[in-house]
Simulated assay, not measured.
Amino acid sequence: MFFPATSLAQGQPQQLPSVALQAGIHVIRAEVARTPEQRQTGLMFRKELAPNDAMLFVFELPAQQCFWMKNTLIPLSIAFLRDDGTIVNIADMKPQTLDSHCSAEPVRFALEMNQGWFAKRGLKPGAKIKGEPFGNR
């Protein structure tokens, strides 16, 4: 399921096409950031994120991916994912900081959700996120 993208105004949250993902019984609505500009902006300037909403960052090639929270107003957790959707590692990130949070191995995907989302559902490294971006449903 995809939703149309809208343009990004300076200092305004971006709205990107989204895809349905699944973590066990939990359905996630993930906006997909594919371009360098979309990935750089991410969830900046948002004042809230619905309970099962997320942003999926898609990179062209596997590499160590690192994220910060500049201009991000809400606390987030980030899961770094292998090509098949397996969680490599998860980090909790504080709003409006430049602290770097990196993948433990080269990955092409990262999934940001409200802080604590993964922990509250018992999702840890080794768990799988399913959906079209990972070639599984």
Rank of each mutant, 00 (worst) to 15 (best):
D99K: 15
Q65F: 00
D83W: 06
L98E: 15
H101K: 01
I87Q: 00
Q64H: 13
P95I: 10
T97E: 11
I78G: 09
F80G: 00
T72A: 05
A79T: 00
R82D: 10
A104V: 09
A91R: 15
G85E: 05
D83R: 12
S103F: 09
S77W: 09
A79R: 01
T72I: 13
C102R: 14
T97P: 09
T86G: 07
C66V: 06
I74C: 02
W68H: 06
D83I: 09
T72D: 11
C66Q: 01
L76R: 10
M69V: 07
T86R: 14
C102N: 09
M69H: 04
K94R: 15
W68D: 04
P95T: 05
Q96P: 11
D83G: 08
C66M: 02
A104H: 08
W68Y: 05
I78W: 07
M93L: 01
F80H: 01
L76S: 08
L81Q: 03
F67Y: 05
V88M: 00
K94A: 15
T97Y: 08
L81A: 02
S103T: 11
F80K: 01
Q96T: 09
Q64R: 14
D84C: 05
T86M: 08
D83Q: 13
D83M: 06
K70V: 03
A91L: 14
I87H: 07
I90K: 08
Q64D: 10
Q64K: 12
D92I: 09
A104N: 14
D84R: 04
M93G: 04
L81P: 03
L73D: 01
G85Q: 01
K70W: 03
R82I: 03
R82W: 02
K94F: 13
K70E: 05
L73C: 02
F67I: 02
K70S: 06
L81S: 01
D84N: 13
P75C: 08
